[in-house]
């Protein structure tokens, strides 16, 4: 039986009728037409589907849309504002933090949450934070560079 799920996605109310078994990632991609969030392994491992749920990074393939009813979700589409990239997006651009790009939305959302909790992470802390995000192209070092770039950028802006 279908049920109405109401989630505030990137500040916009999204109200759609779905089955309780609908995963959050499919709600975002199929109902909201926000396809920046990727479906990767579907087994809670790869992190390509990472979004912010009430400000916390979660794997949207492992959450039912009904569990998010009444909550706030931020996806990669919600980061850039006024035509300007978010500092983490800028870091990935400037430091070549991607090749094929498939893992990138999830990597970026994870990095955004990391820098909120820990504005000056060490390279080791960044590695630990992105353990749940797999990249098969970069070998990770440019991703860590990108997140370090973003940390510096955010600190500069705050000054």
């Amino acid at each position: 039986m279908k049920t109405v799920v109401n989630i505030r996605v990137n500040g916009v109310e999204q109200k759609h009728e779905v089955e309780p078994r609908t995963l959050l990632v499919h709600f975002l991609r199929d109902c909201c037409r926000l396809t920046g969030t990727h479906v990767g392994c579907e087994t809670s491992i790869c992190g390509a589907c990472t979004v912010l749920f009430e400000g916390k990074a979660v794997k949207s393939c492992t959450l039912l849309a009904v569990q998010a009813d009444g909550s706030e979700v931020t996806t990669i589409e919600g980061l850039a504002g006024d035509g300007r990239l978010h500092p983490v997006q800028e870091g990935f651009w400037e430091r070549h933090g991607l090749q094929c790009g498939y893992c990138t939305p999830g990597m970026i959302m994870m990095a955004v949450q990391l820098l909120e909790r820990n504005p000056k992470p060490t390279r080791e802390e960044i590695s630990h934070a992105i353990e749940g995000n797999l990249c098969r192209c970069t070998g990770y070092s440019h991703i860590i560079d990108a997140i370090e770039y973003a940390a510096r950028k955010i600190a500069e802006v705050k000054k």
Partner: peptide, 12 residues
């Protein structure tokens, strides 16, 4: 706790 799964799993 920080040895469980990964950061996203630990959030939920």
């Amino acid at each position: 706790a920080p040895q469980i799964g990964d950061a996203q799993v630990r959030n939920r």
